[in-house]
Amino acid sequence: MRSRPAAIAVILVLVVIAIAIGALYIGVADTTTSIIWNIRGPRVIMAILIGSGLALAGVLMQGSLSNPLADPALVGVSAGAALGGVAAVSLGASFNTAFSALGACAGGAIALAVVTSISIRNRVPEVVTLLLAGVAVTAFAGALLTVLVSVSDSTATRSVTFWSTGSLSLTTWAAVLTVAPFVIVGAGISATMASSLDVLSLGDRAANALGVNVSAVRYRALIAVVLLVSVGVSSVGVIAFVGLLVPHAVRMVIGPRHGPLLLISALAGTILILVTDTASRVVANPIEVPIGAITAVVGAPIFFILIRRTRASQGGWA
């Protein structure tokens, strides 16, 4: 696999660029070390965790639900996680603590359980139902989050806009240490399921007949999704389209096998978040543009193209 070393090299270059670029140009002697260590360092590591986490979650959702349009933000997992995290904080926890992380996981898991249980009928996941349920869950969780943020003093450091468009600007080392274990465990789970996800493309009954325990695979994949996405969202907000677009783009280049797809998507997601986060700091310097705004501006048109392509290849959404 030639693309792997290339992707890692690109990531290393981007890490250096991301650390060097920002609202304040590095070079002011006294503050340089502090900026690199306390502000840009954790931010770059967080970008790696968020980018790989969202991309892996996208691959797992699309593979386990046999649905090329699945994405943690579209189906409501991200909104549920944001709500769970905010709810934990309004109950007295601090951001980026074990308690807020568990709140986020609970929120993400509940949202995912609701949309998948509604969309799987006769053991077949339905594309349209999944997306519609995602719309409802996202709206519901978003509304509750708005209420909580308005009434609770303890969540005041993060606005409603922060949650809906995402930003890595508040990232600290504590945040990195809170998010990292969840993403690492989620990535570990996803690494074990590549070949089972391949076979799920046949549909549940045929995969079962080949000895694959479809429900167990799907369960495991969705648990990994919750771990990969939820705590990250509770730390940086909802960053849309990454989980949707990265797996698609990678699949077009290297094909659908989940082994390489998982690995290369994680690397490509990392690159995407590093680039967009760096861009968010410099395009309107000294003001930071929310990173989710950039991914949505780029992602929404590509999503349209994907819808058209998928419709052409599947003959409609009936």
Binding site: S66, N67, P68, S201, L202, R205, A206, A209, P256, R257
Partner: peptide, 12 residues
Amino acid sequence: VLTQETTVSFPF
């Protein structure tokens, strides 16, 4: 088992 469903979700 050969099921009636022949769709494969991804381009394998």
